[in-house]
Amino acid sequence: MKRLIGLGLLLAGLLYPFAVYFGMEHFAPWQFGLLLGGLWLARALTGERRPGSLWMALFAIAFCGLLALLNSPLLLRWYPVLISAFMLGLFGLSLKFGPPVVERLARLREPQLPDAAINYTRQVTRIWSLFFLCNGLIAAALTVWAPLSWWMLYTGLISYGLMGLLFAIEWLVRQRVRGHA
């Protein structure tokens, strides 16, 4: 059940900009709020008890409740900003209250990391933190100043393309760094 809820939230996040853009003529903002809020509530009730996961779920539920209560089309556009803020918090706080997110992921494959790899994962975590900061700022600017179509294009396509590009570049750099080690 946990995986199904996680998959539902992932799909909702990926499809959200398109759902808002194409669904606004069929659904009210309060309906989006109830659907998303229900998914986040289910995650809070069935999810793992990792540090920060409960507060993220509670904050998302509060956002969705506000969206449902205010029924505001403009508020709909702030959800990708919220998700970027969550990711920035997750990556950024892991640098302070480590181990960094990228190090935890690397240790899944290689439990005994050399010091150079630990330093590398810390740098990659910093880069992802910077990415999520910039991504959130761009999404916020588009929410406030751009037409809905631009917002949908960036939050639904361009930002994911940039994430993929960052993944690819990091993978290439990692191969090169491992080759020199």
Results as ranks from 00 to 15, higher is better:
Lys2Leu: 09
Arg3Ile: 09
Arg3Gly: 05
Leu7Ile: 14
Leu10Gly: 08
Gly13Met: 08
Leu15Gln: 01
Tyr16Gly: 04
Pro17Thr: 07
Phe18Lys: 09
Val20Met: 03
Tyr21Phe: 15
Glu25Ser: 15
Phe27Val: 07
Pro29Glu: 04
Pro29Phe: 00
Trp30Lys: 13
Gln31His: 10
Phe32Thr: 01
Leu34Cys: 09
Leu34Pro: 01
Leu35Val: 15
Leu35Thr: 14
Leu36Thr: 08
Leu36Val: 07
Gly37Cys: 08
Gly37Gln: 04
Leu39Ile: 09
Leu39Thr: 03
Leu39Arg: 01
Ala42Cys: 06
Leu45Val: 10
Gly47Lys: 08
Gly47Glu: 06
Gly47His: 05
Arg49Phe: 00
Trp55Glu: 12
Met56Gly: 01
Leu58Cys: 10
Leu58Ile: 07
Phe59Met: 13
Phe59Arg: 05
Ala60Trp: 00
Ile61Thr: 00
Ala62Gly: 01
Ala62Val: 14
Phe63Gly: 05
Gly65Cys: 02
Leu69Ala: 14
Leu70Met: 12
Ser72Lys: 07
Ser72Glu: 11
Ser72Cys: 01
Leu74Cys: 00
Leu74Tyr: 08
Leu74Thr: 14
Leu75Ile: 05
Leu75Met: 05
Arg77Ala: 00
Arg77Trp: 01
Arg77Met: 03
Leu82Phe: 11
Ile83Ser: 00
Ser84Thr: 01
Ala85Val: 13
Ala85Glu: 00
Met87Lys: 00
Met87Pro: 04
Leu90His: 14
Leu90Arg: 11
Gly98Asp: 06
Val101Ala: 04
Glu103Val: 10
Glu103Arg: 11
Ala106Pro: 06
Leu108Tyr: 07
Arg109Tyr: 07
Pro111Ala: 04
Pro111Met: 01
Gln112Thr: 09
Gln112Phe: 01
Gln112Glu: 13
Leu113Lys: 02
Pro114Ser: 15
Pro114Met: 10
Asp115Lys: 11
Thr121Phe: 06
Gln123Arg: 15
Val124Ile: 14
Thr125Lys: 04
Thr125Glu: 03
Ile127Leu: 15
Phe131Gln: 06
Leu137Glu: 08
Leu137Tyr: 06
Leu137Phe: 13
Ala141Pro: 03
Ala141Arg: 09
Leu142Gln: 02
Thr143Leu: 05
Val144His: 11
Trp150Cys: 07
Thr155Arg: 03
Thr155Tyr: 04
Leu157His: 11
Tyr160Asn: 04
Tyr160Leu: 05
Tyr160Trp: 09
Leu162Tyr: 02
Leu162Ile: 12
Met163His: 06
Leu166Ser: 13
Leu166Asn: 11
Leu166His: 11
Ala168Asn: 13
Ala168His: 14
Ile169Phe: 14
Ile169Lys: 11
Leu172Pro: 05
Leu172Tyr: 12
Arg176Ala: 12
Arg176Tyr: 12
Arg178Val: 08
Arg178Ile: 11
His180Asn: 12
